[in-house]
Design a protein around this nucleic acid. Structure first.
Lengths: 144, 144
DNA sequence: AAAATAAAGGATAAAATTGTCCTTTATTTA
DNA sequence: TAAATAAAGGACAATTTTATCCTTTATTTT
C-alpha cells in the first residue's frame, strides 16, 4: 500500500514522538534499531522529513532528531504525501491517467468511497496521537 | 496500491471478457493496445494467468485468449492474489511481520476495517460484472 | 583550539519491478 | 506437407526502489 520509505518514515516519526516528548533528542541508530529498519536508509528518510519541516534535528553531541509541539500534530497523510508523493491520493487504482468521475475506470466509483475512508483516516490520525498507547505498549513499532 | 502487473492483468481480463463473450478469441497485441499497456509485458502476465487457470488460450491462426463462463466469475481479488501474492491481503500497513489483533501496530485497528471493505469489494466484483458498462462505454480501460 | 559527536549529503550498489526481444512450440489453413 | 499464425518461454535491459558507505559540516565539550 505504501512504500518502504513511507512505512519507515511513519514508524520513525512515531518513535521520535514518544522519545522526545520532553525536549530530548534521539539518534538515527537508536531509531532504526527500534523500528527495525536499515540505519542509512532511515537516515535518508529523516533527512528528507527535516528538509520538508515535518521533523527537526540538531547536529553535534547531544544532537539528534526531535519533534516540536507543532510537529506532533502532523497527520499521517502528510508523511505519505511527503515521501510517496500524491500517488496514493491522486492516482487511479487501475493506473488510468485520466480516470475521473466523468470518465471512470470500472472500479472508480467503488474505490472512491474506500479511498475517502483511507484519506479520512490518514488525515484524522496524527503522529502524536499514538504516544499513550505506544508508551503503554498496547501498540508496537517492532516485533521479533 | 497494486503493482503494474496487477493493474494490467485486471484491465486485460476485463477487455478479454467483453471481446470473447461469444466464443471469440483475442490476441495480445489487440489487448495491449486497448488497455494501454506494453505488449510483451502484457503477454507475460497473460501467460501467468493462463498457467494459473484464470484465463484460457489457444495457439495458431484464430487462436488467442478467451474466458469461459467459469472464468467470467473470477473475482478481482483472485487476480490480485495471483499476480501480487498475498502482500495486499496479509501484510501490515506499516510492514510489521507479526502484526495482529493481539500484537497490533499503531494503525492496525483503523486499517482492519478499511482493509475488510477493500477485500469485500475485490471478492464481490467479478471480471464479468463490468461487461455491460464497458460495452455501453460508461466505463473505460484506456483514456487518451 | 582540539576532539568527539551526530546529522547532511553525495556516490554507489543491490534488489525488485517493469519492459523488450528473440526463439520455440502448437495449431490451423491452404 | 508447407506456410502462416499466435501463444509459451527464456534471456536480457532499463528503471525504480531499497540499502550501504564515505566524506563533509555543524555543534558541543573538554
Amino acid at each position: 500500500m505504501f512504500s518502504k520509505a513511507t512505512e519507515y518514515g511513519i514508524k520513525a516519526m512515531m518513535y521520535i514522538a514518544v522519545k522526545t516528548r520532553n525536549g530530548e533528542r534521539v539518534g538515527v541508530k537508536e531509531i532504526a534499531k527500534n523500528i527495525d529498519a536499515p540505519v542509512h536508509f532511515t537516515a535518508k528518510i529523516l533527512q528528507e522529513l527535516c528538509r520538508k519541516n515535518l521533523l527537526h534535528s540538531a547536529k553535534g553531541p547531544n544532537g539528534g532528531f526531535y519533534l516540536d509541539s507543532a510537529d506532533l500534530k502532523t497527520p499521517l497523510g502528510k508523511i505519505v504525501k511527503t515521501l510517496d508523493g500524491d500517488r496514493f491520493y491522486n492516482t487511479c487504482v487501475l493506473g488510468l491517467k485520466a480516470c475521473s468521475h466523468k470518465n471512470p475506470c470500472p472500479v472508480h466509483h467503488e474505490f472512491k468511497v474506500i479511498k475517502e475512508k483511507i484519506i479520512d483516516m490518514l488525515e484524522k490520525n496524527t503522529i502524536g496521537s499514538f504516544n499513550t498507547e505506544l508508551i503503554n505498549k498496547n501498540f508496537f513499532l517492532k516485533m521479533k
